[in-house]
Amino acid sequence: MLRNKVAVITGSSSGIGKEIALNFVKNGAKVVINYPFEGSKSEAEKVVAQIQEAGGEAIAVMADVSQFEQAQALMKVAVDTFGSLDILVNNAGITRDMLLLRMTEEEFDRVININLKGVFNCMKHGSRIMMKKGGSIINMSSVVGLHGNIGQCNYAASKAGVIGMTKSAAREFASKNLRINAIAPGFIVSNMTDKLPEAIKENTLKGIPINRFGNVEEVANVALFLASDLSSYVTGEVIKVDGGMAM
């Protein structure tokens, strides 16, 4: 479905981003695996090696998407290496959970800078390239951005902002055949959720009608749909992958 397409996936050395990259490669895409700092380099290189061993094409590029120039350089590397940029997945994100009264300015700013400003930076530089021939931008939001969550004012604000940015940009670029959509995952089993206390996991499960947690493959499959021509008439949408958690 993505034969000869070039995709940049931010924060793709592990978790959902990694699974999206692997799924895209299986469907013919060439991918840029992005990691934020030197400490993540080995993980990113392992993903690249896994892709190359399976006969796919990939490179690993270090870039902190919260930094304007680094986001620009990330897009340039994709074009310089593969000759195009057709798909951008803004997946990079962090949490710094804390009750509002205890949350520090640094905890708030860091989450906003990566989760929200990072999406702006990558969309700004990526769209300038992609608008010439069209493509697909997929922004990773969260059900927390739709209904909030205790201890996550910073994260909820960033993910709600991603939704607003997605819808606004989708209107701006629709005439350029550049589609922009968002995915709002619910509780997806990953390194991030593995750190949560069991009591929180059990309480969360009670609010999921399907009665189980999601997996990264299920998010990646929605990303594949949005990246491909199967969704050629879909833009400005937020697709929840949450087992009915936020219906």
Rank of each mutant, 00 (worst) to 15 (best):
C153Q: 06
T104N: 13
L85I: 14
K41W: 06
K76D: 03
N154T: 10
E105Y: 15
Q72P: 00
S136C: 13
E38H: 07
I137W: 05
S66E: 04
S142E: 14
C153F: 06
D109R: 14
G118A: 06
K124P: 03
S141D: 11
M140F: 07
F120E: 04
F37P: 01
V61S: 07
K30S: 14
L88Y: 03
R96M: 09
S142V: 10
K76F: 07
E105N: 11
V47Q: 03
V31H: 05
I150A: 13
K117G: 13
I33S: 05
A49G: 03
D64Y: 05
Q50N: 13
M123F: 07
G55I: 10
F37T: 12
R128C: 10
S141M: 04
E57M: 11
L146G: 09
I94S: 06
R110H: 07
N115Y: 08
K46E: 14
D97Q: 09
S141W: 05
G148F: 11
S40H: 13
N113F: 07
G151V: 10
N23R: 08
G134H: 01
Y35F: 15
N149L: 14
D86P: 06
Q70W: 07
F37W: 03
L22I: 00
A58I: 12
L101Q: 13
N121G: 08
M75Y: 11
N149V: 02
V32S: 05
M140D: 11
G28F: 01
L22N: 10
I114W: 02
A44K: 05
M62S: 09
K76Q: 15
S84K: 14
C122Y: 01
V119Y: 02
V119A: 01
A78M: 11
T104C: 12
E43M: 13
L100A: 15
E53S: 14
V111L: 04
M98A: 15
M140C: 02
Q70V: 09
V77P: 00
N90I: 14
K124L: 11
V25E: 02
D80A: 14
F108D: 02
G135R: 13
P36W: 04
I138W: 00
E105A: 13
V25D: 04
K46A: 11
N154L: 06
K117S: 09
E105V: 10
A29P: 08
G28M: 01
A92N: 02
K41C: 03
F68E: 12
N23P: 00
Q52F: 04
F120S: 01
G118T: 08
R96H: 08
D86W: 04
V77Y: 05
K124F: 14
Q70S: 05
I20T: 06
S141A: 15
I20H: 04
G151T: 08
Q52P: 04
A44S: 00
E69N: 15
A58Q: 08
A71G: 15
D86I: 07
V25P: 03
F24R: 01
L22C: 04
L116Y: 09
L22G: 05
G83D: 06
D86F: 07
